[in-house]
Amino acid sequence: MQSSTERPDAVVDAPKGNWVDEIAPPWSRPWLRLSRADRPIGTWLLLLPCWWGIGLAMMADGPRWFDAWIALACTIGAFVMRGAGCTWNDITDRRIDAQVARTRSRPLPSGQVTLRGAYGWLIAQGLIGLAILLTLGQAAIWMGVASLALVAIYPFAKRFTWWPQIFLGLAFNWGVMLAYAAHAGRVDAAPVVAWLGAIAWTIFYDTIYAHQDAEDDALIGVKSTARLFGDKSPRILAGFALGAVLVLMLATALPGRNLLIAWAGVAGFGLHLGWQLRKFQPDQGDTCLRLFRSNRDAGLILALFLAVAGLA
């Protein structure tokens, strides 16, 4: 069977042997690639804060059977809304992507998908996400609507600020509050504080990711924390990792139940970030990509312990 690296239509930085390249129907591949379905790490990073929010809500007032649907709805919603966000990002960045070696093979700059088709795909994914959101209650619906402005702004952030990772963090971690609201019908302090800690985490992992493109970004004038921090990245990222851990410790303390279990999860999360820092080499693109993807495991550690703390 042909590997993904031998396919002329494959995206060059997608994982080898991914399911889109190997088993998806050929007609569907450009659309799935536009949604980044060939690299699921983004879906995980959007989903995990949602699961954190469910865990925090269960810690606050106990589990409910509806939480199982919230978890499933967030999983489906993360897939389609991450796809919609990536589609919007590629629409706005299509000219920039054509100038960067890692991204010029994406469906829009490579011509696999037309601009009109991309807009249609964006709308279709948005409608699926809306249908799921409508099942989660009024508070969650309003939280979902409020997130749209952040999603719309993020692709443009790299044009006007050295801190686009903050805008990504604001949008990508909104689910911790949305999922909490779906359970509780309100947003308490705990998910808001967790959102702030997760933003620090996003700055951490997305700066590692951005180091892959630092040279190309400098040539075309795109801003990022990777370029801003430069050789100081390891030391600065250590500060963001510590900040994420401390803020998440506070967030998990606020519900007032099973604190030691929750803190064990935060400790495991922090140890994983420390491991990443030890392995981090800003000038090694392959290493940066591998460490970025490993944040799925860091987030899962915390999600698992929060679930146990909520169910106990």
Rank of each mutant, 00 (worst) to 15 (best):
251 A>L: 12
14 A>S: 14
227 R>A: 13
17 G>F: 10
65 W>Y: 12
279 K>H: 09
103 T>G: 10
94 R>L: 04
110 S>C: 07
89 N>G: 12
294 S>F: 00
168 L>D: 05
209 Y>T: 05
272 H>C: 05
102 R>H: 04
238 A>I: 00
224 S>P: 10
79 F>D: 00
14 A>N: 08
101 A>M: 08
218 A>E: 14
276 Q>F: 01
244 A>S: 15
309 A>K: 05
25 P>R: 12
138 Q>N: 13
18 N>G: 04
93 D>Y: 11
265 G>N: 08
312 A>N: 12
218 A>Q: 12
142 W>M: 12
252 T>K: 01
21 D>R: 01
256 G>P: 04
104 R>Y: 01
232 K>Y: 13
294 S>Q: 14
218 A>H: 10
166 I>M: 14
228 L>H: 15
295 N>Q: 11
4 S>Q: 12
48 L>F: 07
266 V>L: 05
87 T>M: 11
11 V>E: 12
158 K>C: 11
134 L>I: 04
125 Q>D: 02
238 A>G: 15
39 R>P: 02
258 N>Y: 01
151 V>F: 02
11 V>K: 01
190 A>G: 10
72 L>H: 05
211 H>W: 03
110 S>W: 02
17 G>P: 08
87 T>N: 09
40 P>W: 11
2 Q>R: 13
79 F>P: 00
155 P>A: 11
171 A>K: 05
287 T>F: 03
158 K>N: 07
135 T>Y: 07
62 G>M: 07
3 S>W: 10
202 T>I: 06
44 W>H: 07
310 G>S: 09
287 T>Q: 15
